[in-house]
Write a protein that binds this DNA or RNA. Structure first.
Lengths: 167, 167
DNA sequence: CGTAACCTTGACGTACACGTAAAGTCACAG
DNA sequence: CTGTGACTTTACGTGTACGTCAAGGTTACG
């Protein structure tokens, strides 16, 4: 029998809430990237080191899965480098920090600074996206002009053939 | 004196029209890519081998410059690989062929086939672009939600400080 | 306790997109 | 005719983003 370990509860280490933790294989399958890629992203600081099972097995959260999907989007669809993406991911980290500090008492000026920083980074990202949106729009318009041209040519060939038949 | 060879008329080889031909250095400067990159694109079939001066110097046309700019757009902005881009460029080639055959007598069926092929490739490209447009749109919406969140938080800090002052 | 399935950390390999250095050629000024 | 700058090919080097073993530890089931 091909045995498959039950999606077991973490034996130790993970922030002892009752989340559904996933091993690297599951995450790989769900996200469509390889295990190597997941380790590589961790090594490069794109994914925070996940919690571990006592044996050393990585245990990922659903949040981690979402992050991986986000990274793949940014990379394959939008052509950002992992370095770019790391910056963006770090902005996400800042957001988490802000949320964490929200409950606790923290220097207001410090909180302001972090929010300002996060705002700045996010605005740069929006600008980049706007740039790409415009470029893509122009590109699409070009392609549709071409398609229109092709339709015209096809029609001309139709008429030419019709003339030949009736001629 | 820093000598610069006059943007000389091609001594030989180039399709003997009176276009303004550019050497590789000029093209590199105008397009912002290196000479190495231009030779590399040629090697990879992304740029058709340009005409040469009798000494072997490459002579590029304005069309070539436009193509280089298009390639850079596709690559850096949209994240296509050079292999992808080569396909697209080859579609462009087909279009040129169709235009060339338009004047001459050519098999109608052959012309139809080429137009059909070009249409197919172009439609695939439009589909890819649409995909990216949607992804970018969603990403932008996400970022703007974040920005709104940041504004809310900043406002909360404002009010908190105001309360502290008046308290 | 055996063993299959799953995981771990190295460490080396690879495809892509060029960078860079070497050694020689070409064009024109002086 | 020589110097200088722009160009040529050839060839090896580099950074990114992983792929691919290899050797071994861990977990769960029978």
């Amino acid at each position: 029998m091909t045995q498959k370990r039950s999606t077991a509860a973490p034996t130790i280490e993970p922030p002892s809430d009752d989340q559904a933790y996933l091993q690297i294989g599951e995450v790989a399958e769900r996200t469509g990237v390889t295990q190597r890629t997941l380790r590589f992203y961790e090594e490069k600081g794109l994914l925070k080191p996940p919690s571990r099972l006592e044996g050393g097995f990585r245990l990922y959260s659903e949040d981690d899965v979402r992050r991986v999907e986000q990274i793949k989007q940014l990379q394959t669809l939008l052509g950002f480098t992992l370095a770019d993406i790391k910056e963006m991911v770090e902005a996400e980290e800042i957001k988490s920090q802000i949320r964490a500090e929200y409950r606790r008492d923290a220097e207001i000026s410090e909180r302001r600074a972090k929010i300002a920083k996060a705002t700045e980074v996010t605005e740069r990202q929006v600008a980049v996206i706007d740039h790409k949106l415009r470029a893509l729009g122009e590109m699409k318009a070009d392609l549709e002009r071409k398609l229109a041209q092709y339709r015209t040519w096809t029609q001309m060939l139709d008429e030419l053939e019709a003339a030949q038949k009736s001629g």
